[in-house]
Amino acid sequence: MEVEGDDTVHKPWETEYERSWEVLQEDREGRLHSTLDEELYKAKRRRLFERPNSARLGMMRYLFLIVDASRSMADKDLKPDRIRCTLKIVENFLAEFFDQNPISQVGLIITRDGRAEKLLELNGNSRVLMEALKRPPSCSGDPSIQNSLEMTMRALKHVPNHASKEAVIIMGSIASCDPGNIFSTIDELVKQSIRCCIVGLSAEVRLCKTISQKTQGTYQVITDEIHFRDIMLQHCRPPPAKANAEATMIKMGFPKHLVNGPMAACLCHLDQRSIDHVTTSGYFCPRCSSKYCELPVMCKVCGLTLVLAPHLARSYHHLFPLPMFRETVLTEKLSCTGCQVIVSNKGYKCPECEQLFCIDCDLYVHETLHNCPGCVSSVKVQDTTIIS
Protein backbone atom coordinates (compact mmCIF):
# COMPACT_ATOMS: atom_id res chain seq x y z
CA MET A 1 0.00 0.00 0.00
CA GLU A 2 1.32 3.45 -0.92
CA VAL A 3 0.15 6.96 -0.16
CA GLU A 4 0.33 9.48 -3.00
CA GLY A 5 1.49 12.94 -2.04
CA ASP A 6 1.72 16.12 -4.08
CA ASP A 7 4.93 15.28 -5.96
CA THR A 8 6.25 11.96 -4.68
CA VAL A 9 4.92 8.63 -3.53
CA HIS A 10 5.61 7.68 0.08
CA LYS A 11 5.18 4.58 2.12
CA PRO A 12 2.68 4.91 4.98
CA TRP A 13 5.45 4.91 7.59
CA GLU A 14 7.39 7.64 5.72
CA THR A 15 4.60 10.23 5.77
CA GLU A 16 4.65 13.18 8.12
CA TYR A 17 3.15 12.64 11.57
CA GLU A 18 0.96 15.14 13.36
CA ARG A 19 2.30 16.65 16.56
CA SER A 20 -0.87 16.76 18.60
CA TRP A 21 0.92 18.34 21.56
CA GLU A 22 1.69 21.48 19.55
CA VAL A 23 -1.34 23.73 19.97
CA LEU A 24 -1.29 27.14 18.35
CA GLN A 25 -2.33 30.06 20.50
CA GLU A 26 -2.80 33.75 19.78
CA ASP A 27 -1.22 36.38 22.01
CA ARG A 28 -2.40 39.94 22.66
CA GLU A 29 -0.52 41.24 19.63
CA GLY A 30 -2.29 38.80 17.31
CA ARG A 31 0.78 36.61 16.73
CA LEU A 32 0.46 32.84 16.63
CA HIS A 33 2.87 30.79 18.70
CA SER A 34 3.11 27.17 19.78
CA THR A 35 2.70 26.09 23.37
CA LEU A 36 5.66 23.75 22.87
CA ASP A 37 7.97 26.73 22.34
CA GLU A 38 6.97 28.13 25.70
CA GLU A 39 7.67 24.81 27.41
CA LEU A 40 11.12 24.65 25.78
CA TYR A 41 11.90 28.18 27.00
CA LYS A 42 10.87 27.23 30.52
CA ALA A 43 13.06 24.12 30.39
CA LYS A 44 16.06 26.20 29.26
CA ARG A 45 15.59 28.71 32.07
CA ARG A 46 15.22 25.87 34.55
CA ARG A 47 18.57 24.45 33.42
CA LEU A 48 20.15 27.87 33.86
CA PHE A 49 18.86 28.05 37.44
CA GLU A 50 20.19 24.55 38.15
CA ARG A 51 23.75 25.45 37.19
CA PRO A 52 26.03 25.43 40.25
CA ASN A 53 27.62 28.85 40.60
CA SER A 54 30.25 27.92 43.20
CA ALA A 55 31.32 24.53 41.83
CA ARG A 56 34.86 23.86 40.72
CA LEU A 57 34.86 23.31 36.95
CA GLY A 58 37.11 21.22 34.74
CA MET A 59 38.29 23.89 32.30
CA MET A 60 40.71 21.71 30.31
CA ARG A 61 38.51 19.06 28.70
CA TYR A 62 39.51 15.96 26.75
CA LEU A 63 36.34 14.71 25.11
CA PHE A 64 35.66 11.84 22.73
CA LEU A 65 32.54 12.12 20.61
CA ILE A 66 31.19 8.63 19.79
CA VAL A 67 28.69 8.54 16.91
CA ASP A 68 26.51 5.51 16.20
CA ALA A 69 26.80 4.52 12.52
CA SER A 70 24.68 1.37 12.65
CA ARG A 71 21.81 0.55 10.30
CA SER A 72 19.35 2.28 12.65
CA MET A 73 20.97 5.64 11.74
CA ALA A 74 19.55 5.31 8.22
CA ASP A 75 16.00 5.85 9.54
CA LYS A 76 14.21 8.92 8.26
CA ASP A 77 12.45 10.12 11.41
CA LEU A 78 15.04 12.93 11.43
CA LYS A 79 15.40 14.79 8.13
CA PRO A 80 16.87 13.83 5.72
CA ASP A 81 17.95 10.85 7.83
CA ARG A 82 19.45 10.29 11.26
CA ILE A 83 23.12 10.17 10.27
CA ARG A 84 23.07 13.36 8.17
CA CYS A 85 21.04 15.24 10.76
CA THR A 86 23.48 14.07 13.45
CA LEU A 87 26.55 15.20 11.50
CA LYS A 88 25.02 18.63 10.91
CA ILE A 89 24.23 19.07 14.59
CA VAL A 90 27.70 17.80 15.55
CA GLU A 91 29.27 20.49 13.34
CA ASN A 92 27.31 23.18 15.18
CA PHE A 93 28.26 21.58 18.49
CA LEU A 94 31.98 21.60 17.66
CA ALA A 95 31.89 25.27 16.64
CA GLU A 96 30.19 26.24 19.90
CA PHE A 97 32.32 23.86 21.97
CA PHE A 98 35.64 25.36 20.88
CA ASP A 99 34.23 28.87 21.20
CA GLN A 100 33.47 28.25 24.89
CA ASN A 101 36.34 25.79 25.56
CA PRO A 102 39.28 27.04 23.47
CA ILE A 103 41.93 25.10 25.43
CA SER A 104 40.14 21.73 25.19
CA GLN A 105 40.51 18.84 22.72
CA VAL A 106 37.98 16.57 20.98
CA GLY A 107 38.36 13.18 19.29
CA LEU A 108 35.91 11.35 16.99
CA ILE A 109 34.88 7.67 17.09
CA ILE A 110 32.21 5.89 15.04
CA THR A 111 30.79 2.47 15.85
CA ARG A 112 29.18 -0.01 13.44
CA ASP A 113 29.26 -3.74 12.58
CA GLY A 114 30.08 -4.50 16.22
CA ARG A 115 33.37 -2.54 16.03
CA ALA A 116 34.67 0.90 16.92
CA GLU A 117 36.69 3.00 14.49
CA LYS A 118 38.65 6.10 15.48
CA LEU A 119 38.15 8.79 12.85
CA LEU A 120 40.37 11.38 14.51
CA GLU A 121 42.66 11.57 17.51
CA LEU A 122 42.28 14.24 20.18
CA ASN A 123 42.58 17.56 18.42
CA GLY A 124 42.11 21.21 19.31
CA ASN A 125 41.50 22.39 15.74
CA SER A 126 37.79 22.60 14.93
CA ARG A 127 38.47 22.90 11.19
CA VAL A 128 40.19 19.49 11.08
CA LEU A 129 37.32 17.92 12.99
CA MET A 130 34.69 19.39 10.67
CA GLU A 131 36.53 18.20 7.58
CA ALA A 132 36.38 14.64 8.95
CA LEU A 133 32.56 14.93 9.15
CA LYS A 134 31.91 16.21 5.62
CA ARG A 135 31.33 12.75 4.15
CA PRO A 136 28.68 10.75 6.06
CA PRO A 137 29.78 7.18 6.85
CA SER A 138 27.86 4.18 5.54
CA CYS A 139 25.42 2.80 8.10
CA SER A 140 25.50 -0.98 8.67
CA GLY A 141 25.29 -3.58 11.40
CA ASP A 142 24.92 -2.89 15.10
CA PRO A 143 26.90 -0.51 17.34
CA SER A 144 29.22 -1.63 20.12
CA ILE A 145 29.20 0.54 23.21
CA GLN A 146 31.82 -1.58 24.96
CA ASN A 147 34.36 -1.42 22.11
CA SER A 148 33.83 2.34 21.83
CA LEU A 149 34.37 2.90 25.53
CA GLU A 150 37.41 0.61 25.59
CA MET A 151 38.96 2.65 22.77
CA THR A 152 38.13 5.86 24.62
CA MET A 153 39.80 4.62 27.81
CA ARG A 154 42.97 3.68 25.94
CA ALA A 155 43.15 7.14 24.38
CA LEU A 156 42.48 8.97 27.67
CA LYS A 157 44.76 6.78 29.79
CA HIS A 158 47.71 9.18 29.63
CA VAL A 159 45.68 12.38 30.07
CA PRO A 160 46.80 14.26 33.24
CA ASN A 161 44.55 14.02 36.29
CA HIS A 162 43.84 17.75 36.41
CA ALA A 163 41.98 17.54 33.09
CA SER A 164 38.33 16.57 32.64
CA LYS A 165 37.99 13.26 30.76
CA GLU A 166 34.64 12.83 29.01
CA ALA A 167 32.79 10.78 26.40
CA VAL A 168 29.59 11.87 24.64
CA ILE A 169 27.75 9.04 22.86
CA ILE A 170 25.09 9.70 20.21
CA MET A 171 23.11 6.43 20.20
CA GLY A 172 20.49 5.71 17.56
CA SER A 173 20.12 1.98 18.13
CA ILE A 174 18.38 0.30 21.07
CA ALA A 175 20.83 -2.64 21.04
CA SER A 176 24.59 -3.02 21.44
CA CYS A 177 26.85 -5.83 20.17
CA ASP A 178 29.48 -6.21 22.91
CA PRO A 179 32.20 -8.90 23.03
CA GLY A 180 32.42 -9.19 26.82
CA ASN A 181 31.05 -8.09 30.16
CA ILE A 182 30.27 -4.42 29.73
CA PHE A 183 29.77 -3.91 33.47
CA SER A 184 33.49 -4.49 34.02
CA THR A 185 34.10 -1.75 31.46
CA ILE A 186 31.78 0.55 33.41
CA ASP A 187 33.76 -0.13 36.59
CA GLU A 188 36.97 0.74 34.78
CA LEU A 189 35.42 4.00 33.57
CA VAL A 190 34.63 4.92 37.16
CA LYS A 191 38.21 4.14 38.23
CA GLN A 192 39.64 6.36 35.51
CA SER A 193 37.13 9.16 36.31
CA ILE A 194 35.75 9.26 32.76
CA ARG A 195 32.36 10.95 32.57
CA CYS A 196 29.97 9.43 29.99
CA CYS A 197 26.98 11.34 28.62
CA ILE A 198 24.58 9.65 26.19
CA VAL A 199 22.09 11.20 23.77
CA GLY A 200 19.43 8.74 22.62
CA LEU A 201 17.67 9.09 19.27
CA SER A 202 15.16 6.26 19.74
CA ALA A 203 13.82 5.04 23.09
CA GLU A 204 15.29 4.94 26.58
CA VAL A 205 17.66 2.02 27.11
CA ARG A 206 18.42 0.64 30.57
CA LEU A 207 22.11 0.04 29.80
CA CYS A 208 22.66 3.63 28.70
CA LYS A 209 20.98 4.93 31.83
CA THR A 210 23.21 2.71 33.99
CA ILE A 211 26.39 3.93 32.27
CA SER A 212 25.48 7.59 32.69
CA GLN A 213 24.44 7.21 36.33
CA LYS A 214 27.55 5.33 37.44
CA THR A 215 29.92 7.72 35.65
CA GLN A 216 28.02 10.83 36.89
CA GLY A 217 26.98 11.76 33.37
CA THR A 218 23.63 12.55 31.77
CA TYR A 219 21.27 10.52 29.59
CA GLN A 220 18.60 12.24 27.51
CA VAL A 221 16.32 11.08 24.69
CA ILE A 222 15.46 13.62 22.00
CA THR A 223 11.99 14.57 20.74
CA ASP A 224 12.94 16.35 17.50
CA GLU A 225 15.82 18.12 15.73
CA ILE A 226 15.54 21.29 17.82
CA HIS A 227 15.62 19.32 21.05
CA PHE A 228 18.59 17.33 19.70
CA ARG A 229 20.52 20.53 19.05
CA ASP A 230 19.70 21.97 22.48
CA ILE A 231 20.85 18.79 24.24
CA MET A 232 24.18 18.80 22.39
CA LEU A 233 24.79 22.46 23.21
CA GLN A 234 24.33 21.66 26.90
CA HIS A 235 27.60 19.69 26.76
CA CYS A 236 29.53 22.83 25.82
CA ARG A 237 29.56 24.01 29.42
CA PRO A 238 32.42 22.53 31.48
CA PRO A 239 31.18 19.93 34.00
CA PRO A 240 31.98 20.11 37.72
CA ALA A 241 35.46 18.79 38.43
CA LYS A 242 35.98 15.51 40.25
CA ALA A 243 36.53 15.66 43.99
CA ASN A 244 39.92 13.95 43.63
CA ALA A 245 41.09 16.14 40.76
CA GLU A 246 44.61 17.43 41.21
CA ALA A 247 45.43 21.14 41.16
CA THR A 248 48.69 21.43 39.24
CA MET A 249 50.55 24.12 37.37
CA ILE A 250 50.14 23.90 33.59
CA LYS A 251 52.87 25.22 31.31
CA MET A 252 51.56 27.21 28.36
CA GLY A 253 53.31 29.13 25.65
CA PHE A 254 52.17 32.38 24.07
CA PRO A 255 53.69 32.38 20.57
CA LYS A 256 54.21 35.45 18.43
CA HIS A 257 52.68 35.76 15.00
CA LEU A 258 55.40 36.60 12.48
CA VAL A 259 54.66 37.69 8.92
CA ASN A 260 58.23 37.69 7.64
CA GLY A 261 59.63 34.83 9.69
CA PRO A 262 61.88 31.99 8.49
CA MET A 263 60.61 29.85 5.62
CA ALA A 264 59.20 26.67 7.20
CA ALA A 265 56.41 24.13 6.80
CA CYS A 266 53.40 24.28 9.09
CA LEU A 267 53.30 21.29 11.43
CA CYS A 268 49.49 21.32 11.32
CA HIS A 269 49.55 20.06 7.72
CA LEU A 270 52.61 17.84 7.56
CA ASP A 271 50.55 14.85 6.44
CA GLN A 272 49.12 16.74 3.43
CA ARG A 273 52.54 17.23 1.76
CA SER A 274 51.48 20.45 0.06
CA ILE A 275 53.81 23.31 -0.84
CA ASP A 276 51.04 25.79 0.03
CA HIS A 277 51.85 25.39 3.73
CA VAL A 278 55.56 26.28 3.32
CA THR A 279 55.38 30.02 4.07
CA THR A 280 57.09 32.67 6.16
CA SER A 281 54.04 33.64 8.26
CA GLY A 282 52.59 31.79 11.21
CA TYR A 283 52.76 31.24 14.96
CA PHE A 284 56.19 30.11 16.20
CA CYS A 285 56.57 28.11 19.41
CA PRO A 286 58.60 30.08 21.98
CA ARG A 287 60.39 26.92 23.12
CA CYS A 288 61.32 25.03 19.92
CA SER A 289 60.37 27.56 17.16
CA SER A 290 58.00 25.12 15.43
CA LYS A 291 55.47 26.85 13.20
CA TYR A 292 51.69 26.49 13.33
CA CYS A 293 49.00 28.24 11.33
CA GLU A 294 46.23 28.15 13.95
CA LEU A 295 45.93 28.22 17.72
CA PRO A 296 45.33 26.74 20.26
CA VAL A 297 47.38 23.62 19.64
CA MET A 298 49.76 21.32 21.47
CA CYS A 299 53.26 21.51 20.00
CA LYS A 300 54.14 18.24 18.29
CA VAL A 301 57.87 18.74 18.98
CA CYS A 302 58.14 19.86 22.61
CA GLY A 303 54.60 19.17 23.89
CA LEU A 304 53.97 22.75 25.04
CA THR A 305 50.37 23.99 24.92
CA LEU A 306 50.28 27.05 22.64
CA VAL A 307 47.47 29.54 23.25
CA LEU A 308 46.66 33.21 22.97
CA ALA A 309 45.61 35.45 25.84
CA PRO A 310 41.99 35.81 24.54
CA HIS A 311 41.63 32.01 24.66
CA LEU A 312 42.14 32.06 28.42
CA ALA A 313 40.03 35.19 28.89
CA ARG A 314 37.14 33.56 27.03
CA SER A 315 36.76 30.98 29.81
CA TYR A 316 36.09 33.74 32.36
CA HIS A 317 32.30 33.54 32.06
CA HIS A 318 32.29 29.89 33.15
CA LEU A 319 33.92 30.76 36.47
CA PHE A 320 31.79 33.86 37.11
CA PRO A 321 28.43 33.33 35.35
CA LEU A 322 25.98 36.14 34.73
CA PRO A 323 23.27 36.33 37.45
CA MET A 324 19.80 35.18 36.48
CA PHE A 325 17.26 37.80 35.47
CA ARG A 326 14.11 38.26 37.55
CA GLU A 327 10.81 37.24 36.00
CA THR A 328 8.48 40.26 36.07
CA VAL A 329 4.77 40.55 35.27
CA LEU A 330 4.15 43.74 33.27
CA THR A 331 1.12 46.00 33.60
CA GLU A 332 2.04 48.06 30.54
CA LYS A 333 3.77 47.54 27.22
CA LEU A 334 7.52 48.13 27.29
CA SER A 335 10.27 47.58 24.74
CA CYS A 336 13.03 45.02 25.19
CA THR A 337 16.47 46.51 25.82
CA GLY A 338 18.10 43.98 23.52
CA CYS A 339 15.91 43.64 20.40
CA GLN A 340 13.44 46.54 20.93
CA VAL A 341 10.44 44.20 20.58
CA ILE A 342 7.36 45.24 22.55
CA VAL A 343 6.95 43.08 25.68
CA SER A 344 3.39 43.07 27.00
CA ASN A 345 2.81 40.09 29.30
CA LYS A 346 5.98 38.92 31.00
CA GLY A 347 9.55 40.22 30.99
CA TYR A 348 12.89 39.60 32.65
CA LYS A 349 14.87 42.29 34.48
CA CYS A 350 18.56 42.33 35.21
CA PRO A 351 19.13 42.57 39.01
CA GLU A 352 22.02 44.99 38.48
CA CYS A 353 20.84 47.57 35.92
CA GLU A 354 17.05 46.88 36.11
CA GLN A 355 16.79 46.81 32.31
CA LEU A 356 13.95 44.76 30.78
CA PHE A 357 14.50 41.89 28.33
CA CYS A 358 12.23 39.51 26.47
CA ILE A 359 12.61 35.76 26.95
CA ASP A 360 14.56 35.33 23.69
CA CYS A 361 17.13 37.95 24.69
CA ASP A 362 17.28 36.53 28.21
CA LEU A 363 18.33 33.12 26.86
CA TYR A 364 20.70 34.66 24.32
CA VAL A 365 22.43 36.77 26.96
CA HIS A 366 22.95 33.83 29.34
CA GLU A 367 23.78 31.12 26.80
CA THR A 368 25.80 33.01 24.17
CA LEU A 369 26.66 36.62 25.05
CA HIS A 370 27.48 36.13 28.78
CA ASN A 371 27.31 39.92 29.30
CA CYS A 372 24.30 42.06 30.12
CA PRO A 373 23.92 44.76 27.41
CA GLY A 374 22.33 47.14 29.91
CA CYS A 375 25.21 46.80 32.39
CA VAL A 376 27.89 47.09 29.70
CA SER A 377 26.31 50.19 28.13
CA SER A 378 26.09 51.93 31.50
CA VAL A 379 29.76 51.40 32.35
CA LYS A 380 32.00 54.36 31.59
CA VAL A 381 35.03 52.94 29.87
CA GLN A 382 38.10 55.03 30.69
CA ASP A 383 41.36 53.09 30.62
CA THR A 384 39.89 49.60 30.61
CA THR A 385 39.09 47.40 27.61
CA ILE A 386 36.07 45.14 28.00
CA ILE A 387 36.49 41.76 26.25
CA SER A 388 33.23 39.92 25.63
Rank of each mutant, 00 (worst) to 15 (best):
Q100A: 13
S140V: 15
N244G: 02
P351K: 01
I170M: 10
I109W: 08
V199K: 03
L207G: 09
T35Y: 07
S173V: 03
T280S: 08
R31G: 02
H269I: 01
F284E: 01
K88R: 15
L207I: 06
T305P: 03
R314K: 13
L306R: 06
S290Y: 06
V190P: 02
H277Q: 13
W21S: 11
R19P: 04
L207F: 05
G282A: 06
L149E: 01
N147Y: 07
L24F: 12
V9F: 07
F49K: 14
I182A: 04
D383G: 14
S344Q: 05
R195A: 00
V379N: 15
G261A: 00
A247Q: 15
G261C: 01
V297D: 13
D27I: 02
P262G: 03
K349R: 13
S202R: 01
F228A: 01
T35L: 13
H10A: 15
G30V: 00
K76V: 08
R273Q: 14
S281E: 09
R71C: 05
M298H: 13
H158P: 00
P80M: 14
D276E: 07
K242E: 15
D271L: 06
E91P: 09
T331L: 02
N101G: 02
C236I: 14
D37S: 08
F98P: 12
V9L: 12
R314N: 13
P321M: 05
E18S: 11
C177K: 09
L189M: 11
L356E: 01
D113E: 11
G282R: 03
A69C: 13
I359H: 10
S377P: 00
I198S: 02
I83H: 08
V341R: 03
L207N: 00
T337C: 09
R31Q: 03
T15S: 10
V106H: 06
A203T: 06
E294M: 12
D230V: 10
G114I: 04
L308A: 03
C268R: 07
G107N: 05
A247W: 02
T305E: 12
E131F: 05
K191F: 05
F254Q: 02
S138E: 07
I182Q: 02
